[in-house]
């Protein structure tokens, strides 16, 4: 019998949507700052930003567990000040997803901002534009294709996040069982049909996202090629 409980799908979409929205803003902001300024230790900081890309997700999850656990620095703070618990909650899944997908957004945004001709921003300055206005009228629109690519990739990564999520949010049916986690536990319980069902769903979602991104960027590259 095929599983009709769609909670994992809803949870996955919820986690991916929430984390991607936050990652988009944070990645955009940090990428802008890092491409505009030079300071001591910049390389080190940038390596730290990209670390989740090369570490096993379980290591990232372990780190988050240390930080956000009941006795971790942030975990304790959040619990004492706001009564918020991170471990074994959907918020934990969102945090895991943020950390793991952040490097993708950050890298895309850095590449997008670096590819803008500096003289266009200088031209805006000589025309009296404030940094804020030039960001929204020149830098952001020109970086948009790269930023959107980062957004979509982060969303797809957030949707498929497993290791760090399992470490931080665990497997609580109806609460933290996102699709990848549901697949793992279905297989472990020998429920191959259920696992297959979710595999088909997540493959379709992933395929759909990357196919759309590919199609969209090709179309836009053609348009932007004219602009260069």
């Amino acid at each position: 019998m095929i599983e009709t409980n769609f909670t994992p799908l809803i949870l996955s979409l919820k986690v991916a949507a929430l984390s991607t929205s936050l990652v988009f803003v944070i990645g955009l902001l940090l990428a802008r700052i890092m491409t505009q300024r030079d300071f001591f230790g910049k390389n080190l900081l940038e390596s730290f930003f990209l670390l989740p890309l090369v570490l096993p997700p379980t290591v990232v999850g372990f780190g988050l567990l240390i930080l956000f656990g009941k006795y971790g620095f942030f975990g304790k703070l959040l619990h004492e000040w706001f009564g918020i618990q991170i471990v074994f909650t959907l918020t934990g899944a969102v945090i895991a997803s943020i950390v793991v997908s952040f490097p993708l957004m950050y890298q895309s945004a850095v590449a997008a901002f670096t590819s803008i001709d500096r003289r266009l921003e200088d031209a805006a300055r000589t025309l009296g534009s404030s940094e804020w206005r030039l960001f929204w009228t020149v830098s952001f629109p020109l970086a948009w294709p790269g930023l959107l690519a980062g957004f979509v990739l982060s969303f797809a990564r957030g949707l498929g996040e497993f290791g760090a999520t399992l470490m931080l949010a665990g497997y609580i049916p109806g609460k933290t069982d996102t699709i990848p986690v549901a697949i793992y536990f279905a297989v472990e319980a020998g429920q191959m049909e259920k696992a297959m069902f979710w595999v088909v769903i997540i493959v379709s979602l992933g395929m759909g996202t990357t196919f759309w991104l590919n199609w969209w960027s090709k179309r836009n590259l053609r348009r932007y090629a004219h602009h260069k």
């Binding site: 001709d117 003289r119 266009l120 200088d122 031209a123 805006a124 009228t137 020149v138 602009h227």
Partner: peptide
């Protein structure tokens, strides 16, 4: 500017 730097 040398290459005009018009906003594309």
């Amino acid at each position: 500017f040398q290459d005009y730097a018009l906003f594309p």
